[in-house]
Design a binder for these strands. Structure first.
Lengths: 197, 197
DNA sequence: TAAAAATCTTAAACTAGTTCATTTTTTTTC
DNA sequence: GAAAAAAAATGAACTAGTTTAAGATTTTTA
């Protein structure tokens, strides 16, 4: 069977944890929706009810909230082979407090809430897939937030740069500041300082 | 069938997401180990390989890491009806960087790695249980760390106090500081200030 | 390709939280 | 229940990161 590039990407992602037959692959793919987002367009805005979870096959998006002062706090940059969305809103149907905005023209595969439920009925193996996916996400999330806690902003910057060298070059310094958790001004100082070495 | 108190507690916890037959309940309980920890004793120490995941049926424990300066960062207080352990170490068999210390005499039910794997074979419904448990944990974890980000230490303290009034009275101010992410001295100042109102 | 918009840089004054040192209070232990 | 240990309070000097403001550079748009 011949699959398109984006389908190969998601099937490879899934095959990390479960094996699917050809039939199951086709069934799975039939439950997904292809979505394109232009640079600067929103995939989701605060107040929306998240009706999809997304897998990125191309591009880059930033996921963020605005605090009471209107300052953005970026919780992740989602690039190829990443899953994103607002799980909480997707699960509870409550309005999200997130914005998801493309920073490059992007291509995604989305699964709707209805199809997500259907998936577990049709291919129960996906309970296992999501069990492991959520387990791993939880672990890396906990590790990250626990690790970051005692680092200075400078250390967090160096770590990000080392860990995601490909992402650093695709985003603005301002957005990076929003992710690291500092002001753009201080981000600028840190970068100047680190590069001077 | 007559169950002991701790077993009723864990069965109720599980029944939030899946229904078990009598036989499955008994099978499940047979895979668990009863564990007691005295106040000030460690359930886990950095360097150990986590061979259990725990459900607390009585008492209170603190889960923490030590940063490079030896300062404790408390990631959770686990009381009755909570799950705890180090998922990462449990999953990967790598040494943990956590300490789990009882702050009161405590009673737990533990599931070993072998029995955890066995559980999915014997009662596949548990894939679903853990899928939903991890999904919800992930959501609340993300929500908590995202929400906390723009709050001052004082606001985080007030929030904790409001959200977990029962826990506040069971822990020391010093441990609370380790959870809030500030020094005990500053914690003391905040409490004095807040109570003065 | 010129004008407008957004981002980045630099610097000075400021603040939330730390550090260190000392004293008081509470809890633990024998 | 006295002595020892741990936790809490208080204060002064300090630092990482913020705020505000203004100019320089880069990117976007028409």
């Amino acid at each position: 069977m011949h699959y398109k590039k984006s389908h190969i990407l998601i099937l490879n992602n899934v095959s990390r944890f479960i094996d699917l037959t050809e039939l199951e692959k086709q069934k799975y793919l039939s439950l997904l929706t292809e979505i394109s987002v232009k640079r600067k367009a929103f995939l989701m805005q605060a107040g929306d009810i998240a009706s999809y979870e997304y897998f990125i096959t191309k591009g880059c998006l930033k996921v963020y909230t605005l605090d009471d002062d209107g300052a953005p706090h970026i919780s992740m940059f989602a690039v190829e082979d990443y899953w994103t969305g607002d799980m909480a809103s997707f699960m509870t149907k409550e309005p999200t407090s997130y914005f998801i905005k493309a920073t490059e023209d992007s291509e995604l595969l989305g699964i709707s809430r209805a199809n997500y439920e259907l998936l577990f009925q049709e291919i129960p193996k996906f309970e296992r897939f999501y069990r492991i996916l959520y387990h791993k996400s939880l672990i890396s999330y906990i590790r990250r937030s626990n690790h970051g806690i005692s680092l200075t902003a400078e250390e967090r910057y160096i770590e990000f740069k080392t860990k995601y060298p490909n992402i650093v070059n695709r985003i603005t310094q301002k957005d990076l500041a929003g992710y690291i958790g500092i002001t753009p001004e201080f981000m600028s100082k840190i970068i100047t300082k680190v590069n001077r070495r």
